[in-house]
Design a protein around this nucleic acid. Structure first.
Lengths: 335, 335
DNA sequence: CTGAAAGCGCTAACAA
DNA sequence: TTGTTAGCGCTTTCAG
């Protein structure tokens, strides 16, 4: 076995004929070093293929170096919903060139396996962004207890969770969708909701409901979905059974909206002529769908950058306020 | 600003009235401590909400604590192909309760952005598992230069890459598929390949080719795909144009096979009656597809555990041999 | 511009 | 069973 102990800064310094301090300066790009010394050190570094020991460096600089993106969902969900890839991408981008690792922590805390909680309590990361928080996942409690700097992407469900968050006004977004449907002339407007143990699911339902009520329409056409295509398809079927003369539909995610359009097609309804459909997210699927989806904008990557921004500040010990981002409606073909 | 400096083991020890060493023992679960001391220390830990400093611990134990799963693909790809979620899940499982972080490093090295290389060279992780390595991604070179312990999941394309890997015999798998098609009576057998800048793509093509040749059949019906559904659909269309009497099809991934079945349906062909289709991966999509997919088993999660196993040993300084896992064919409805 | 020296917080012999 | 004592490899004053 290569009993080669990894070369240390000491070795580099020796080889370059300078002190450890000077070697350190060169390695870290400190300008106050003579050219000759710099060259010598750099040469030694490559010859020895020296790599600084992160732990040692970190111990003294006290620099943070990893944040967790926490997603209390099965890895299956995580990898099939574009929402998560968008978030992860946004986080990565926002971190830019900061030398910080992003650790993706997935897992369903419901099914007895407490790996996520253990991980978070283990102090393996310097901060956390919680992405798809549900009513019962207790994440806010764990986070509060460990005092791990953290921010929620999406308002936490529990009011006790006094953690900073970034969100959009989901109710307002849903209201936009409902209003568009009503103004289009729809009178039997249904909705396929998101998970109701998430604030986004609740808020979107509420926005739809209040808008319909204000217009004097019935709000009984509610079917529960879970943001996934499969869930959306089933919910649409149920809606169609209950109300064959449905003429407008608000789905709380694009994935569900696309599935709904498929289901509607199977049932012989034309979109938007027979049933107008509005989705939520303005994901890639919205433009690729036939007909293209009218949908509410969910600024995922902005939310991700804001979350990173907040988190960095929390890690700095700052006290920050929640951020609410604006939303809007994109009108395409489906409504 | 909570100018609170984080409590150290020293503080805990003081509060518990023991020495730092004893406190350390308690924190690390060393059994050789008196019950009273243990209780006192634990109390102090919670009161002070003490969390060990990882950097300090690591500095002395020299224990590794994070490995990268490197995927030179766009995040879009990564999040839409079940192969990657399977791999990631397998890696996570195999790591079990080892206190090691898994860092997902994605990115397309082709498009000028060298973040991945920088990251790898930055020494941010203690090892790497490279998942979807392409001919030109130069990963093996970077890895060799940095001497970062690493293993490839899938044989590296470049012969110069003398890194350990785990793989299945992709050619044998493809041969299984081709033979099944031939024995079924197919005479005009086409294939939709994977990316040909990956060893898996190449090997599967070769296995198909050799088997057809051995049976005295034509091997001209080759269309290039890229493992994705969209790529598979397009390739199938081209195949159908070139050869309307196609009666057998081997697709190098389940995603492409499912897309092919869809495309075949659009073109008025019945599966398997008019065209028999065999996929590759035995992913979840294979059982959900209508008709259910006959497909070659790709033991993703076993490969992932083996990769972890090898990597751990490489990180220990051991020299390891590549591992080749067995494969097989699962016959369902599509062929 | 450079070097000497002082730790960062922790674990692991070694003694007691 | 416990405490004492050395560092782990690095950065950073502080003198020179």
């Amino acid at each position: 076995m290569p009993a080669h102990p990894a070369p240390t800064l000491e070795d580099v310094a020796a080889r370059a004929g300078v002190s450890r301090a000077t070697a350190s300066r060169v390695v870290n790009g400190d300008p106050r070093v003579r050219e000759a010394a710099r060259v010598a050190v750099n040469a030694a570094v490559t010859e020895l293929s020296y790599r600084p020991n992160r732990a040692a460096r970190r111990l003294v600089t006290r620099a943070a170096d990893s944040i967790a993106v926490v997603v209390p969902e099965s890895d299956e969900r995580v990898f099939s919903d574009p929402f998560f890839s968008g978030t992860l991408r946004g986080v990565t981008r926002a971190l830019g060139s900061l030398p910080m690792q992003v650790v993706l922590v997935m897992g369903n805390p419901d099914d007895g396996d407490h790996r996520m909680e253990r991980y978070l309590r283990g102090g393996h990361t310097d901060g956390a962004i919680v992405v798809s928080h549900h009513q019962n996942d207790n994440l806010w409690r764990v986070l509060a207890e460990t005092q791990l700097p953290s921010v929620f992407l999406g308002r936490p469900y529990a009011a006790e969770a006094r953690a900073p968050y970034v969100d959009v006004d989901n109710a307002a977004g849903a209201a936009l969708a409902a209003r568009h449907l009503i103004e289009r002339g729809c009178r039997r407007v249904g909705t396929v909701t998101g998970p109701l143990d998430m604030s986004a699911g609740q808020d979107r339902l509420r926005g739809w409901q209040e808008t319909l009520e204000a217009a004097g329409l019935e709000t009984d056409l509610v079917e529960h979905g879970d943001f996934t295509a499969a869930g959306g398809a089933e919910a649409t079927q149920r809606l169609l059974e209950r109300c064959p003369d449905l003429d407008g539909l608000f789905a709380a995610s694009d994935q569900m909206a696309v599935a709904a359009i498929g289901e509607l097609g199977v049932a012989g309804r034309r979109v938007p002529d027979d049933v107008a459909v509005v989705g939520y997210d303005d994901s890639a699927a919205a433009t690729m769908s036939r007909p293209a989806l009218t949908t509410v904008v969910n600024p995922i990557s902005e939310m991700a950058s804001r979350a990173v921004d907040l988190l960095l500040r929390v890690m700095d010990g700052e006290v920050v306020e929640p951020a609410i981002l604006p939303t809007g409606l994109v009108v395409r073909e489906s409504a």
